[in-house]
Amino acid sequence: MRRVPPTVLRVLVCGALLLLASCGWGAPASGQGERQPAAPMGVTAAAGSATSVHVMWNLAAEDPKITRYEVYRGTTKIKEVPGSEHMVDITKLEPSTAYVFTVRARNAAGVPGPLSKRVRATTPAAVAADRTPPTRPGSPHGKAVGSRAAQLSWAKSADARGVASYDIYQGTSKIHSVGGAQTATVVTGLRPGTAYSFTVRARDAADNLSPPSATVRVTTAAGSDDGRGTAPTDFRATTHRSEGAYYIDLRWTAPEADGVITEYQVHLDGRPATSLVWGAGPPRGTSTYSFYVGREADEAHRVRIRAKLPDGTWGGFSAERSVTTGRR
């Protein structure tokens, strides 16, 4: 199949669609430069204590692969983590201070992507000479939510000056953090048919950490990693000709998810062809997308699509459709 420069892509999307710089046809040819990673999605920031903030984001599925994420406070890069991680604790901050954070990805070629949206967090006031940790969170409960998530809840901890945050651990690894007023969360990105052990620890403004709660054991529902229940449905593909060129026109219904889906990836003939992201107000229900495939008639193609779920994991692929340029 003929290689198509990115400049000839034409996007016809229902709603306000932003075509990322990462969109394109597989890996670029030598000398054409490397594709820029997309801006990280789902970035959040929450104060963990008077001197720390927990920053999280969605992992990106990119080609070339993301090798590291850079975290910025204002315009200053303050942390760098491997591409397999999607959270970090920013420490040594000032109490009672508002901070702004952004995250960007860098791929294996060293190419940086754009900065994510700005997120804000304000640290609580400092507590003098507080060396007493909160009590352990009580009555933890958990249940699987399908094959990829677990819902956790617990009773609030007691602390003389108040709990600033709760940290959730999977085994010995901290995987999530929520505000001190929150006593429930949903852990996503899990594997089907897998047993997990979770504990919760409370943290106060002086950064004292409580003993861990009792262990909550949850086994996700059996299934497969292809996530069939998260695939776009009613997927259709046709072609049309315009100004001597052929385009593939896609139409699908967004999968149901606990949140808004803003990103999709299109596979053409078994390989990623292009990614698309709605900048704001993504359509719910039916979506459409059209992209250039060349000027030759009677060329057969296979196409399918998948969504990036709100937890940052890729959902299942839609049914694969076959189309031939010049034919309806």
Rank of each mutant, 00 (worst) to 15 (best):
D159P: 06
R321W: 04
T102F: 00
L12D: 12
L18K: 06
E299S: 10
R106P: 00
Y99G: 03
T51I: 07
T67R: 08
A109G: 15
Y289W: 15
P37K: 05
K92N: 15
G42M: 00
A128Y: 08
L19I: 05
S49N: 06
A150W: 07
D130P: 02
L268W: 02
S177Q: 10
R251A: 13
D159H: 08
T230V: 01
G229P: 03
I175Y: 08
S153F: 01
G48A: 11
R106E: 09
N107S: 09
V81N: 03
E34V: 02
V119D: 01
P192E: 11
L115F: 13
V186K: 10
K92M: 14
G146I: 10
R161W: 11
Y247A: 07
Y72A: 13
S224T: 15
V119C: 00
G24N: 08
I66T: 12
T185P: 08
P282L: 08
A46Q: 08
T132D: 15
V81I: 15
V81W: 07
P310V: 02
I90W: 10
V277H: 04
V88Q: 13
R295P: 03
Q265N: 09
A45Y: 08
A280N: 14
T238P: 00
T288L: 01
A195C: 01
N208D: 13
T253F: 00
T253D: 13
R295Y: 14
K143S: 12
R191Y: 06
P232F: 09
P255D: 06
T51K: 07
P211K: 12
Q151W: 04
V71E: 04
A195M: 11
I78Q: 04
M87C: 14
L93Y: 13
G279D: 15
W278C: 11
T286L: 13
D63I: 09
S290K: 02
V303T: 10
T220Y: 05
M1F: 06
H86T: 14
I248V: 15
V127D: 12
F101I: 11
H176A: 15
T132Y: 03
D204H: 11
V187W: 04
G270R: 03
T91N: 06
P255W: 05
W154A: 06
A195E: 13
N58S: 12
T7C: 04
G312K: 01
P282I: 05
H141W: 03
Q265I: 13
G113H: 04
S116K: 01
S96A: 14
G74H: 04
G138E: 11
